[in-house]
C-alpha cells in the first residue's frame, strides 16, 4: 500500500515539474550549473571506468576462447556488443545513480531540512520546477556521456587486446565492424534517454519528500541509489523485451 502511494506521489511530482514555469532568466544559470556538476563532473569517472571495463571485457573474452576454430576477431565483436548494448547505457547509468543520484538527493534533501524549500514555496515559486527541471534538462546531455563511454570502452578493449597480445589490431578492428546493426546503437540511446530522466527524477523525489534531519539526508541518498538502480534494471528489461525481441 505504502509503495503504491509513493509511486502515485512520484507521478504527481512529475506533473508538478511541468506546471508553472520559473522565469527563464532564473532557470538558465541553474541549468548551466547542473550541466557543470552532473555532466562535466562525471566525465572523469566515466572515462576511467569505461576504459578499464572495456579492457576487462576484451581480456575475459580472449581468455575464454579455448577453441582454436573460433576466430580471434570475436574479441572485438564481443567487446563492441557488450559495451554498446549493456555496459555503457545500463551499467554506467547504475554507476551514475550513485554519483549523480546521490548528489541530487542530498542537495535537494539538505534544502528541505534547512527549510530552504519552504522559503521558496512561501515566495510563491513552483519548487518542483525550480529544483528539478534544470536537472532534467542538464541530463538531456547524458547521451553524450554515454557516447564517450562507448568509445572509451571499445578503445580500452582494443588497447588490452592488442598490447596484451590477445589479437592483432587488424583483427580487433575487423571484429568491431562485423555484423554491425545500426539499430543496436539507436536502442542504446533510447534506453539512455529514458535512464537520464529516471536519474534526474527518482533521486529528486527522495530528496524533495525527505522528512527529518541530517541523518535522513544520508539515508535518503542510499535509498534513492537503491531505487534508481532497481527501476533502471527493470526498465532495461522492459525496453529490451519490447525493442529487441
Amino acid at each position: 500500500m505504502k509503495i503504491i502511494k509513493k509511486i502515485g506521489s512520484y507521478f504527481l511530482m512529475l506533473q508538478k515539474i511541468f506546471g508553472k514555469f520559473t522565469k527563464w532568466s532564473v532557470l538558465r544559470p541553474l541549468i548551466f550549473k547542473d550541466i557543470e556538476v552532473l555532466i562535466l563532473g562525471s566525465i572523469g569517472i566515466v572515462a576511467f571506468i569505461s576504459f578499464f571495463v572495456g579492457g576487462v571485457v576484451a581480456i575475459q573474452t580472449a581468455l575464454n576462447m579455448s577453441n582454436p576454430l573460433i576466430p580471434r576477431n570475436l574479441i572485438g565483436y564481443a567487446t563492441r556488443q557488450s559495451v554498446i548494448l549493456e555496459f555503457a547505457p545500463t551499467f554506467m547509468s547504475i554507476i551514475m545513480a550513485g554519483k549523480v543520484g546521490s548528489y541530487i538527493t542530498s542537495s535537494i534533501g539538505t534544502m528541505r531540512v534547512t527549510e530552504q524549500i519552504d522559503a521558496l514555496e512561501v515566495m510563491g515559486i513552483n519548487t518542483y520546477n525550480y529544483l528539478i527541471f534544470p536537472k532534467i534538462v542538464a541530463l538531456l546531455l547524458y547521451p553524450f556521456v554515454i557516447t564517450f563511454s562507448m568509445f572509451l570502452g571499445i578503445f580500452g578493449g582494443y588497447i588490452a587486446s592488442v598490447y596484451g597480445g590477445f589479437c592483432s589490431s587488424a583483427l580487433f578492428i575487423e571484429g568491431i565492424q562485423i555484423e554491425f546493426i545500426p539499430f543496436h546503437v539507436r536502442y542504446a540511446f533510447i534506453k539512455t534517454i529514458i535512464f537520464s530522466f529516471l536519474l534526474a527524477t527518482i533521486p529528486a523525489y527522495h530528496g524533495y519528500y525527505l522528512k527529518g534531519g541530517a541523518l535522513q539526508v544520508g539515508k535518503a541518498s542510499t535509498t534513492s541509489f537503491v531505487w534508481t538502480s532497481v527501476v533502471i534494471i527493470f526498465v532495461n528489461y522492459m525496453i529490451t523485451q519490447i525493442l529487441l525481441t
Binding site: S25, D118, M123, I125
Partner: peptide, 29 residues
C-alpha cells in the same frame, strides 16, 4: 504569497548564493 515575507527559525538562506544574491532573489523572480 508574493505579499508575504518570512523569516525562518534556521534563517533558510540559500547556501549556494551570497548575501546579495539571497536578497535579490525574490526581485529576480
Amino acid at each position: 504569497r508574493k505579499e508575504m515575507g518570512i523569516v525562518f527559525q534556521s534563517s533558510a538562506l540559500f547556501d549556494s548564493m551570497n548575501v546579495q544574491e539571497n536578497i535579490i532573489f525574490p526581485l529576480r523572480m
